[in-house]
Design a protein around this nucleic acid. Structure first.
Length: 423
RNA sequence: GGAGAGUUGGCAGAGUGGUCGAUUGCGGCGGUCUUGAAAACCGUUGACCCGCAAGGGUCCGGGGGUUCGAAUCCCUCAUUCUCCGCCA
């Protein structure tokens, strides 16, 4: 969430910048400032009452010691009255704070100044394209057909055992998954990231920390018996490691990576978007997270963007990088680059990674801070990116590398798969 | 799942109703001494809210209660350890 003080001091700027995200903030911002004013005066009033009764309590102690029981009794009754007043004020203050917080988390993050205006994916800005789109032979087919021809992904079996969007990977298909996971992890470790294996279920506090709650509640699988959420991405546990943590400024940059299963309900999806591996309820992803000093977070964003580009280059996939427009960005992001690979049989671009700088938006929710050189406590910046999500990479690899005799495995992966060909 | 014992500042560890936001040690930071370092000695060292400041308030696992007053008493939840049960 945004910092209250910043909102108070930059009301007009907040409203203008949120307009880039097509968010009409004026009413909400004014409500927030008004609520904060109420909060401040209520707090002051309560603090004064408490100060008086603290003072009285000390005096009463002294009176008792000196055996002045009459004075003590008088002070006592005075104190009881103060206490009654405090009892009235307390709920007013708590309610105000709760209301203020609930309004505050409705405000999205401010977009970076380079974010283009726009409403739909068509308004995203292509900042880079690389690789050549392969010309497939006649009779080339989409990956879902390849999956059944070579018996490497079984969607029907997934339907039977679980439901749509939960495929089985089989034989060389399963091996390919494992190869990609190891390849992505090794590349990240090589780039200085520390590997984690995280829990796949998290509590509500963690969901709030990274911003999935409350706005994306319906997107997560939930286990009500235990009040736990299945993670939609390893970003959640990996970033929440630092919830309520104060780092030293020599700790930067914190670079973490985790492979995990990801679970997404994807309510309301339909049609060609969800065919085959294009969109699943359970999928595999390697996620990179960095925590950085505010002055360096944009340089870090570029570094992470280059890391992801390097992976796609090694996999020999044609890709492009988009700078998301205000309307297509997530609630929490200040600047997001999406990576898309071209899947040659479907003839469409598939999103395989999203790399974002959240600046201090998540950090503010999580109370993730650091001590700067002057010893002041400040919010850190958080960033994350997929490096990479597997299903659409697999889709593109299968489609783009198909030949009449089988599917070629890119060279960089061969030492991981142990085979060069799926046939 | 059952029984018992814990949860205090970066760490260790005192404190069982009143000048306790908290003794002390270690660690950190600053200084004296030293060519430099170590040792020794001195000082300093939590977070948050309101306030220009002075100052005030909140926080001893979380929440609630008793009391004029709670780290200290009561309830509750979480969590750790030990024993038993169950299981990988």
């Amino acid at each position: 969430m945004l910092q209250l003080q910043f909102i108070r001091e930059n009301r007009d700027e907040v409203i203008d910048r949120l307009a880039v995200k097509n968010f009409k903030a004026a009413t909400l911002v004014d409500e927030i400032i008004e609520l904060d004013n109420t909060r401040r005066s209520a707090q002051k009033e309560l603090d004064d009452i408490l100060a008086q009764s603290n003072q009285l309590a000390k005096e009463i102690g002294n009176y008792f010691k000196q055996g002045e029981s009459e004075k003590a009794a008088r002070a006592k009754s005075e104190s009881i009255q103060l206490k009654a007043k405090a009892k009235e004020l307390e709920p007013v203050l708590t309610e105000t704070i709760e209301l203020l917080n609930s309004k505050l988390i409705e405000l999205p993050n401010l977009p970076h100044s380079s974010v283009p205006k726009g409403r739909t994916p068509e308004d995203n800005e292509i900042v880079h394209s690389e690789g050549t789109i392969p010309q497939l032979f006649d009779g080339a087919v989409p990956h879902w057909d390849l999956a059944s021809t070579y018996q490497i992904v079984d969607f029907e079996l997934g339907n039977k055992v679980t439901g749509a969007g939960f495929p089985f990977y089989r034989g060389k298909g399963a091996r390919l998954q494992r190869a990609l996971i190891n390849f992505f992890l090794d590349e990240a470790i090589e780039a200085g990231y520390l590997e984690y294996q995280t829990p796949l279920l998290v509590n509500a506090a963690s969901g709030h920390g990274t911003g999935q709650l409350p706005d994306k509640e319906g997107q997560m699988y939930f286990a009500p018996e235990d009040n736990l959420y299945l993670i939609p991405t390893a970003e959640v546990p990996l970033t929440n490691i630092y919830r309520d943590v104060i780092l030293k400024d020599t700790d930067f940059p914190v670079k973490n990576v985790a492979y995990s299963n990801c679970f997404r309900r994807e309510a309301g999806s339909y049609g060609k978007d969800v065919r085959g591996l294009n969109r699943l309820h359970q999928f595999d992803k390697v996620e990179i997270v960095q925590i950085q000093h505010p002055d360096k977070s944009y340089a870090t964003l570029d570094e992470m963007k280059e890391h992801v580009a390097g992976l796609l280059r090694k996999l020999e996939l044609p890709f492009r990088i988009l700078r998301l427009c205000g309307g297509d960005m997530s609630f929490t992001s200040a600047l997001t680059y999406d990576f898309e690979v071209f899947s040659a049989a479907q003839q469409r671009w598939l999103e395989v990674s999203s790399v974002s700088n959240f600046e201090d938006f998540q950090a503010n929710r999580m109370k993730l801070r650091f001590k700067d050189k002057e010893g002041k406590t400040r919010l850190a910046h958080t960033l994350n990116g997929s490096a990479l999500a597997l299903p659409r990479i697999v889709a593109a690899l299968l489609e783009n590398n198909q030949t009449e005799d089988g599917i070629k495995i890119p060279e960089a992966l061969q030492s991981y798969t142990g085979f060069k060909f799926i046939d």
